[in-house]
Computed example of a mutant assay.
Amino acid sequence: MKIAIAGGTGFVGNELTDYLAENGNEVLILTRSKKESDKSGVRFVEWMTDGAAPEKELEGIDAFINLAGKSINDRWTEENKKEIVESRIKTTREVYRIIDSLQKKPEVHVNASAVGIYGTSETETFTEESAPGATDFLSETVMKWEQEAAEIGKLGVRTVFVRFGIILGDKGALPAILLPYKLFAGGTVGSGTQWMSWVHIHDVVRLIHFLIKDSTIEGPVNAVSPNPVQMKEFGKTAAKVMNRPHWIPAPGFALKLALGERSILVLEGQRVIPKAAAENGFTFTFPILEDALSDLLKSK
Rank of each mutant, 00 (worst) to 15 (best):
G7C: 06
G7L: 04
G10F: 05
L16F: 06
T17L: 00
D18L: 15
E22V: 08
N25A: 14
E26C: 02
L30M: 09
T31L: 10
T31M: 09
S33P: 03
E36K: 13
G41Y: 08
R43T: 14
R43Y: 10
V45I: 14
V45H: 05
M48K: 15
E55F: 12
E57P: 05
L58N: 03
I61M: 11
I61A: 08
D62L: 08
D62E: 14
A63L: 05
A68Y: 00
G69E: 01
D74R: 10
R75P: 10
T77C: 04
E78N: 10
E78M: 10
I84Q: 11
S87F: 05
I89G: 05
I98N: 11
I99L: 13
D100A: 15
N111D: 06
S113H: 01
V115Q: 02
G116L: 04
I117S: 03
G119N: 05
S121G: 05
E122N: 13
T123L: 02
S130W: 08
S130L: 06
P132E: 09
A134V: 11
F137Y: 09
L138E: 09
S139Q: 06
E140A: 10
E140M: 10
E140L: 13
M143G: 15
I152F: 04
V157I: 14
R158I: 09
T159G: 04
F161A: 12
F161V: 12
I166W: 07
I167G: 04
K171A: 15
K171H: 14
P175W: 01
A176I: 14
I177S: 01
L183N: 14
G190N: 06
G192D: 05
M196W: 15
I201R: 09
D203A: 06
V204H: 07
H209L: 11
L211Q: 05
L211A: 02
T216D: 12
T216A: 13
I217R: 02
P220H: 03
N222L: 04
A223C: 12
P226F: 04
N227F: 12
V229C: 01
K232G: 08
F234K: 09
G235M: 03
A238I: 12
K240S: 14
H246G: 01
W247S: 12
P249E: 02
P249N: 01
P249W: 07
A250F: 13
F253Y: 08
L257M: 13
L257E: 12
L259N: 02
L259P: 07
E261N: 03
E261T: 04
L267G: 03
E268M: 07
P274A: 10
A277R: 07
A277P: 06
A278D: 03
E279D: 14
N280K: 13
N280M: 06
G281I: 05
F284G: 02
F284S: 03
T285D: 12
I288N: 13
A292K: 09
L293T: 09
S294F: 08
S294H: 04
L296C: 10
L296G: 07
S299N: 15
K300N: 14
